[in-house]
Amino acid sequence: MWGKSTAAVFLGLPLSVLAVGFAALLSSDQATTTLPWLLLFFVVWIAVMTCTFLFKTGLRAWLWMSGLTVAGYAALHFLKASGLIRIAA
């Protein structure tokens, strides 16, 4: 139980930021859709932390969530560095 709880606490936030960030960046009109996505952040964060307890063991929770977080941030970095995603000013 401690493994799942610590995975939820330490990896839930960055994974939620990644999910909401991708949704906001991939929207067609970032100026009008960013605020609603940010308002949904808390709901996404709670959902991610809740889904952590669906894993069979704490080790699996840590491995899957850390793998998703690293892969997601690597993909985000690649998309921004290649110019495929831009932040609207």
Rank of each mutant, 00 (worst) to 15 (best):
M1P: 00
W2D: 00
G3S: 02
S5P: 00
S5V: 14
T6D: 02
T6G: 02
A7Q: 05
A7F: 03
F10M: 02
F10W: 07
L11R: 07
G12T: 15
L13A: 07
P14E: 05
V17Y: 08
V17G: 06
A19Q: 03
V20D: 11
V20C: 09
G21D: 14
F22S: 08
A23C: 08
A23I: 12
A24T: 02
L26G: 11
S27K: 08
S28F: 07
D29K: 06
Q30A: 01
Q30G: 00
A31E: 11
T32A: 05
T32C: 00
T32R: 03
T34L: 11
L38N: 05
L39H: 08
L39M: 15
L40Q: 08
F41P: 06
F42M: 12
A47Q: 03
V48R: 00
V48I: 15
M49D: 10
C51L: 13
L54D: 05
F55C: 04
K56P: 00
T57G: 09
T57F: 08
W62C: 02
W64H: 05
S66R: 02
S66A: 04
L68P: 01
L68S: 08
T69V: 09
Y73Q: 01
L76S: 07
H77F: 13
H77K: 02
L79G: 01
S82D: 10
I85T: 05
I85M: 14
I85G: 07
R86S: 11
I87D: 06
A88K: 03
A89K: 05
A89V: 14
